[in-house]
Design a protein around this nucleic acid. Structure first.
Lengths: 158, 158
DNA sequence: ATCTAATCGATAACATGTTATAGAATATCA
DNA sequence: TGATATTCTATAACATGTTATCGATTAGAT
């Protein structure tokens, strides 16, 4: 089954799944950006704060995993969030390598203020997509992520 | 219809479409990264080169649009690709604002060398997903991108 | 022809992504 | 126990993402 397709200008254009996913994500996230900007947060900072609002006492590595942010990026993000007084970091007593991250009172207030706006925008997104398309998206993406061949880290160890 | 779900540790976790798309894209692109690294290219640089291989004589703004790269990023990317001798830039005679971007001979050779590896990896991806899931993904993502409410730029003019 | 608005690319400033590496702490095992 | 490997965070170096702004150029309207 050849999915190759002739594009607008007669060029060959194979379906480009990574690019398609990039465009889809950009479309979905775009309307949220003004909200983040209004509160001087980046998209990534919001992702971290939102996680902490739901979980309380998360290890830094869990934050990285859950928010899909690499270690070196997260180090800076948390430093800035702490500098802004929104977050606190503390080394675990049991294992001095690990760091626990917590939302500060100020952070909680900020989340409480922003959450309704973000949730409302999400509602708008859901009604724009319709329940059926939304469900299809989630189902298909979950199926993709469940594939062992896709989940594997890829590079064989030396 | 409430899609709220209780996660592993009993926490509330709404479906987070942007995060889901991010994870999906990361999973899909991960196995390609070693190829890019082997040839000292970034993912974005490859995206640009591949576009130029198919099109010849593309305006810079079209590159930005097609590759989903913002102007300021693209300025640097093209400068580095030109510095590496892979690409050429030339102002359009008719409209001195516009810049045409072209693949150099060296760039064409590089693409010719890399394309088989990248294509093979894409084949592996397709067989890992299976034709059905691949088709569903493309269909659903295309439907998302066709929605006017999602395509609109969002912010109303002042 | 002129004035104004829109377009295109570049730059600045800062945040984040990516890879490699270092440092400290802990786990593993001989 | 002691040597070794592994884990977790931080830093460095560079590329890219994001927003704001500038400069040059062209398009549109008068």
């Amino acid at each position: 089954m050849d999915r190759t397709v002739i594009g607008e200008a007669g060029r060959i254009s194979r379906p480009n799944l990574p690019l398609l996913l990039l465009k889809a994500r950009e479309s979905v996230i775009r309307p949220f950006r003004p909200i983040f900007n209004r509160y001087d947060l980046t998209e990534q900072q919001w992702r971290v704060l939102r996680l902490l609002a739901d979980q309380t006492e998360v290890e830094q590595r869990e934050v990285a995993e859950a928010c899909q942010i690499l270690g070196p990026s997260l180090a800076g993000i948390l430093a800035r969030l702490e500098e802004a007084g929104l977050v606190r970091r503390a080394r675990a007593k049991a294992d001095q390598r690990r760091v626990f991250v917590t939302l500060s009172a100020k952070g909680k207030r900020l989340i409480a203020e922003m959450a309704p706006l973000v949730d409302a925008e999400y509602q708008r997104l859901e009604s724009a997509l319709g329940g059926e398309l939304m469900a299809s998206l989630i189902t298909v993406l979950d199926r993709l992520l469940e594939l062992p061949a896709v989940t594997e880290n890829g590079e064989a160890p030396t």
